[in-house]
Design a protein around this nucleic acid. Sequence first.
DNA 1: CATGAATGAGCTTTCATTCAT
DNA 2: CATGAATGAAAGCTCATTCAT
Lengths: 237, 237, 237, 237
Amino acid sequence: MSSNTTMRTVAGRAGARRRPGVREKAAQATRESLLRAAIKVFARHGLHGGSVEKIARAARSYDRMIYYYFGSKEGLFVAVLEEIYRRFNEAEARLDLDPGRPVEALRAVVHFALDYYRRNPEFVTLLNSENLHRGKHIGKSLRAREYSSSAIGVIDELLRSGVARGEFRPDVTARDLYLLIAAAGYFYQSNRFTLSAFLGENLEAPEAVASWERFVQDAVLRTVLVAPPPVDGAAAT
Amino acid sequence: MSSNTTMRTVAGRAGARRRPGVREKAAQATRESLLRAAIKVFARHGLHGGSVEKIARAARSYDRMIYYYFGSKEGLFVAVLEEIYRRFNEAEARLDLDPGRPVEALRAVVHFALDYYRRNPEFVTLLNSENLHRGKHIGKSLRAREYSSSAIGVIDELLRSGVARGEFRPDVTARDLYLLIAAAGYFYQSNRFTLSAFLGENLEAPEAVASWERFVQDAVLRTVLVAPPPVDGAAAT
Amino acid sequence: MSSNTTMRTVAGRAGARRRPGVREKAAQATRESLLRAAIKVFARHGLHGGSVEKIARAARSYDRMIYYYFGSKEGLFVAVLEEIYRRFNEAEARLDLDPGRPVEALRAVVHFALDYYRRNPEFVTLLNSENLHRGKHIGKSLRAREYSSSAIGVIDELLRSGVARGEFRPDVTARDLYLLIAAAGYFYQSNRFTLSAFLGENLEAPEAVASWERFVQDAVLRTVLVAPPPVDGAAAT
Amino acid sequence: MSSNTTMRTVAGRAGARRRPGVREKAAQATRESLLRAAIKVFARHGLHGGSVEKIARAARSYDRMIYYYFGSKEGLFVAVLEEIYRRFNEAEARLDLDPGRPVEALRAVVHFALDYYRRNPEFVTLLNSENLHRGKHIGKSLRAREYSSSAIGVIDELLRSGVARGEFRPDVTARDLYLLIAAAGYFYQSNRFTLSAFLGENLEAPEAVASWERFVQDAVLRTVLVAPPPVDGAAAT
DNA sequence: CATGAATGAGCTTTCATTCAT
DNA sequence: CATGAATGAAAGCTCATTCAT
């Protein structure tokens, strides 16, 4: 991103109170369709593999517009990361948990995580791309760091509630539990192709997905419960 | 990989009784240094980002030699995957566990996995590249699929031993436990850059690494133990 | 020609009422000079031997522009074929024959054919290249096939006229006669180098050219005339 | 062809009286299979398009052998030209004509020419390649020029015979007639792909081939006969 | 705002050829 | 005699980016 490149946000002056005109709406649309196309293309082909031309064509626009709105290919990638983090945060924020029933709430968190990764595979591949680049784009984005997951806070609340009720162990941190859940969901999704070859079974089959979710829920609960359920029938409940 | 490209293996006539001559040794060396360089370059820049010229230069050889020995860039990538799987398998095979002490053995398995991913970051990024490409290169490699992890077998043995002793639950499969361990280690390593930005802490710090390993070991054990240790001091044992 | 390559025709929106601006004229010029250069280079070196860089340099442009305007080297070659067919058709269309004097008209057709091949050697070598490739580019071009020679129609008209006058035999088809004339002109031009070595004489010498034309005219006429001229002096008339 | 390259003929010392040993026979075989492969590959892909590797592979030999036996790619191409001229000459020499029946003999010559080109398409494409290169390889070959067609001499004999019998016109030269016949056969074969697209009919169909041969025979005869047959039924006889 | 044209560096791959046993 | 290894130039093509309306 050369520093002498002009980069527009759609609204011109940010925070202006004027209502958007027709042209601005069209511009908004162009910008958004480029962003949406970029998410798809970068997700499928990576940062290097996704060319600006591919993206522009997928958005039915022109290469030039990418430079107009995002300054550079890298700028576009940063915007893509911000957008997927924003979406993830938004989805997390919609999670409505009952701290009064911490066990059920934890199961719901696990379900949410696994489900989100599975339904949003681009989230996973885009983060992989960013990690391949050692987080250098995220580092540049002020906005992205704002999106620090609310989930850890939520889990923390659940853990405290469970501890208060004498059901959960006090020696488990929300951070660790969050990482374990994220790992279980992310890895399963991200590595499904090599794992499928490796294990000789299709991890995308619905039963495989459901079975994995149950296992992760149980593992998470056993990790935090003071008194895990006895063996008989316990695993599936 | 076009089918009309000649691709050499180094040895010429296989199984010939002649001792390798000077040139054959040099050829071995060329091939191996290309492969080693490819592992590094592909791991750092991905399949698209890693150019054949970069690889050739890193190996102090020539682009042409990549085509001579591996047929194409893709052929080289397949060879790279085969090699890292081979290495992983070899390392796994060196794991010497005592099935008579299943708890300690499981801790060792967790330690091995986390440690291997941490010390071999190229393994992780290369698999990510392959998954970005939906496993299409692994699919082409007969050899790679032979390397189905022996670890699952090992874990299965440990689980049976633990169950026989009445210590482990019978309702946990080796496959699920293997995936959980792999996920915990892989995700932590693979996503350390975005996670560090996200969590605001450096996951590569030795204490962080050690703490994560302990947590994973405990989570794994609590998942399988019939009677998990009581809360006091349990986490650290 | 990969289908996901964007290929521009120069005019942008076709049929727009705007007058072409400066840049559009320059673009026209770029495209045309590339095409002209390609005709020369492909004609001299063949499809394989004529490199895109040679062409770009000859046109004082850049390789990239060939892909911009023609999509690929093959696309450029198709455009070249279309262009030379177009030119040939145009020249044929300028032939102004008097069906009332079929003998003279046939002589004129022979003259035209032999003359055209001789003055446009690139037409001949380019068609040879295309035939080496088994007509696969012509097959792709809708436009090229439209240029089905008007000459056959013209010859047909002459033949009918001659037959009506009782001068020409009715058992000669325009197609066969056309092929004979084309063959005589094409072969003489196309194979002049090997023939010269073979015959030990220079076929490009003006007298050789003139003598050949006279012979072909006579042969053609004797093929169609009911009553060929008697021997004395016949050859030269 | 660099002048400091050693180039072997198979027999070692030329004209040696020794009988060929086992090794020499093997060498002979290698050389011949390279030559045969080169004829095929050059014929199909042209001089530029036919790579030494393709040829070596087609001959189940190695690139290096081409340099060993022929000095260079160009040297191989010269050898190819010599070989196809030799074959053509040999075939011509087998033509056994009866000068006492000049009309039938001329028909036989036409049949031979058209048939040879049709059955030996590589002869045609190779000569086209050589003409694309302006005859520069033929010029280098002493041997090739020895093969000056015997056909012209044969035709000359037939013409004289016909003239002596009062059947043929005395004002037609063997050279011109030879060129006309060659042109008719060569052009039909060489340009069959573009002509097929152009005429919208398949020139390789047996009836098309037969019909063309009859037409050429008739045209040739009418060109030389003092009194061509009358129209009725004449064309097909 | 949008768009066609231009640019030069870099990509993967193939080429003819030579070296060393 | 035959063959595996090496080499550097050049091929076709794609890239991110900038220019000029």
